[in-house]
Simulated assay, not measured.
Amino acid sequence: MVDDTDGAEGQVTTPDGRTLSYLEVGNPGGPLVLHNHGGPSSRLEARLFADAAAARGLRFVCVDRPGFGRSTRQRNRTYRGWTEDLTTVADALGRHEFGVTGWSEGGPWALAAAAYLDPARLRHVSSLAPGSYGAFGDNWAAGRLSRADAFGGTLALRFRPGFHLMYAAVGLTATRFPRSYLKEVRKAVNDYDREILQQAHNAAAFADAGAECFAQGSEGLVRDADLLYRQWAFDVTAIERPVHLWQGLDDRLVPASINATVAERMPGAQWHPVPGAGHFVAVGCADEVFTIAAADLGAD
C-alpha cells in the first residue's frame, strides 16, 4: 500500500503530453539529485535514501520511468529520450544544474545521462551496482550472471512472451504476497544485504517500491529490460566526464566483474569497490555517495 505522506508526490508533463510521476525526499531547498530506480521498483525507492539525502542537504527526487508506477507508458523508449525526460523534470522543478544517480537496473540510465547530457547542467553522476548487461553487446555479461539471470536476458531479447510471463509471476508475488517477495530477495543476497533488509523501514520501503512497479502491469519493466540487455545505443568507452561507479564486491545479483570491466573501459570512471558489500551497496553506502554528490553540487 502506497503511503503518500512519506515524501512529497508530484507529476511533470512532458512536451509530448506524457505524465512523469515522482517522489521527493530530503531538503526541498537543496541541490537537486534525480534518481533512477531499479527494477522491479518505482519512485517509492526514494524512501530508502531519505535520511541520507536530508543529512547532506540534497533534494532527492525519484521518477517513475514510463510504464512504471504512475508514469505514462511510452511505446518507443530510448536512453536518449529518457535523459531528455530528466531535463524536463529538472526544468519543472526550477533547477538548471542537477545530479543523477541510478541503482541496479537504474544504473544504466544514469550512465546514459553521463553520455548525453551537457556537463554544464549535469554536475554529478553516480551509478550504483548497475545492470550493465548491454554495455558491450547484446547480453554480453551472460557468462558472468547466474543461470536464471542469464536466461532472463535471453528471454528478454528472443522470446518476449516468456519474459512477460516471468515478470507477471514476480508482479503477482510482489503485489499480493510481499512477505514472500522479501523472503525470496533475502535468499538471493548476501549477509550485508540481509542486514539492511532486516531494518523494518528498509524492508517496507523496498517491498512498497517493488509492488508499485506493477501498478500498470509488467510492460514497463519488460521494455526496460529490452533496452538493458540489448547493446546500448551509447558508448561507455567514450564517457570522459567523471562518473562515480559503486560496486559491492560480494554482489550476488550483479557480479562485481561486470562493472569492473565497465570501470576499466570508461575513461571517466571513478571506481568505488566496497569489500563485503552486496547489491544493496547503494543503501549501505548512501552517506558516502551523497557526500560526494553534495560536494559536486555545491551543497552547504
Rank of each mutant, 00 (worst) to 15 (best):
Q11F: 15
P15F: 14
V25G: 05
L34F: 04
T14A: 13
V33H: 08
D16I: 14
E9F: 12
T14M: 03
P31H: 05
L20F: 03
D6Y: 05
T5A: 13
S21G: 06
T13C: 08
G26H: 06
T14D: 02
T13Q: 15
D6W: 10
G10A: 09
S21F: 02
R18D: 00
T5K: 14
Y22D: 01
A8R: 15
P15N: 08
G10E: 10
L32P: 04
T5N: 06
D4F: 11
L20A: 05
D16S: 12
P28H: 04
G17W: 12
L34G: 06
G7K: 00
A8I: 10
L32E: 00
V25N: 04
V12H: 09
P31R: 03
Q11L: 12
D6K: 13
P15L: 14
D3C: 07
V33T: 05
E9S: 15
G26I: 03
L20G: 10
A8W: 00
Q11D: 14
L23P: 02
L23G: 01
R18L: 11
G29V: 10
T14Q: 11
V33N: 04
A8Q: 10
T19I: 14
E24Y: 06
V33A: 08
E9G: 08
L34S: 12
D16E: 12
E24T: 03
T14G: 12
G29T: 01
L20E: 03
V33P: 02
V33L: 14
S21P: 00
G30K: 07
D6A: 09
V12S: 03
G10I: 07
G10W: 05
T5E: 12
V25K: 09
G7D: 01
L34H: 03
D6Q: 13
A8E: 15
P15C: 07
P15G: 07
G7Q: 09
G10V: 03
G30V: 07
P31E: 08
G7E: 10
G17Y: 05
D4E: 14
Y22V: 03
L20I: 11
Y22H: 14
T5I: 04
G29L: 04
L23H: 01
R18A: 08
E9L: 13
D6T: 13
N27E: 15
S21Q: 06
D4V: 08
R18H: 10
L23S: 06
D16R: 12
L32Y: 06
V12K: 12
V25Y: 04
P15K: 09
P31G: 07
G7I: 06
T14C: 08
A8L: 15
D16T: 15
R18M: 03
G17N: 13
Y22C: 10
P31N: 03
D4T: 15
D3R: 11
G29W: 02
P28D: 13
T19D: 09
Q11A: 11
T5R: 15
R18T: 02
N27V: 02
G29A: 04
L23K: 13
E24A: 15
T19L: 07
S21M: 07
V12R: 15
L20R: 06
A8P: 00
R18G: 07
G26W: 09
G7C: 01
G30L: 00
G29C: 08
G30F: 12
Y22G: 08
T5Q: 13
E9N: 01
Q11V: 14
R18V: 00
D6M: 07
G17S: 12
L20D: 04
V33M: 06
G10Y: 01
T5M: 10
T13G: 13
L20M: 03
